[in-house]
């Protein structure tokens, strides 16, 4: 793979992250609206409970794809970091291969959960919307995650990337506005 392909991966990853981020925003608004409806207007949003928990699940699974690509899972870094770069590459490749194996197993078994919900007619509590649609949407996230993890695994194994460990924190600590404004 050449550099432009890493750029492409970046863009796909950003796309997935955008979906997940928008979902998180939606759920935030949904829970606030539902709270206002419950306490102030005596009009609870129907299925707010099921909707928000299914959507949180989707946001997390789509985010799982993102984190699989970024390499920012929580892990024990101390021993890997004491090793020379060559050995670390082996360890990092092993670690991400194990993650990929887990993700593949999850994809396979969760598909069973989705089809089970499809055939059993499982539904949301109030509006009786079919549960399999939401579960299927969650499943898509873990399906994407396999590709994302594989991409990072290839980059790591070929020595073109590492497993960054504080990427997440770095951005969280980015006191950005004043610098940008």
């Amino acid at each position: 793979m050449t550099k432009p392909k890493i750029g492409l991966l970046e863009r796909i990853s950003l796309g997935i992250e955008t979906v997940a981020g928008v979902l998180l925003a939606l759920i935030t608004v949904l829970i606030v609206v539902s709270a206002i409806g419950r306490y102030l207007l005596a009009w609870p949003v129907p299925d707010a409970f099921d909707l928000s928990r299914f959507l949180i699940g989707a946001a997390i699974m789509w985010g799982f794809a993102s984190v699989g690509f970024r390499g920012s899972h929580i892990k024990v870094d101390i021993f890997a970091e004491m090793l020379p770069a060559g050995a670390r590459r082996w360890i990092d490749s092993f670690a991400w291969a194990v993650l990929l194996a887990f993700s593949l197993l999850l994809t396979w078994k969760m598909l069973g959960r989705v089809t089970s919900a499809f055939y059993s007619g499982e539904a949301t509590f109030d509006l009786r919307m079919p549960a399999w649609i939401f579960l299927g949407f969650i499943w898509l996230g873990v399906a994407f995650a396999n590709i994302a993890i594989l991409a990072r695994l290839i980059l790591v194994a070929s020595g073109r990337a590492t497993l960054e460990h504080f990427e997440t924190v770095d951005m969280a600590g980015d006191d950005a506005t004043e610098d940008r404004a």
């Binding site: 129907p46 409970f49 099921d50 509590f125």
Partner: peptide, 18 residues
């Protein structure tokens, strides 16, 4: 349960699932 939720809705009440 969901059956009771239906009943409450049909009576003009609002089921609150927690």
């Amino acid at each position: 349960h969901a059956t009771m939720a239906r009943f409450i809705s049909s009576l003009g009440g609002a089921p609150v699932q927690v």
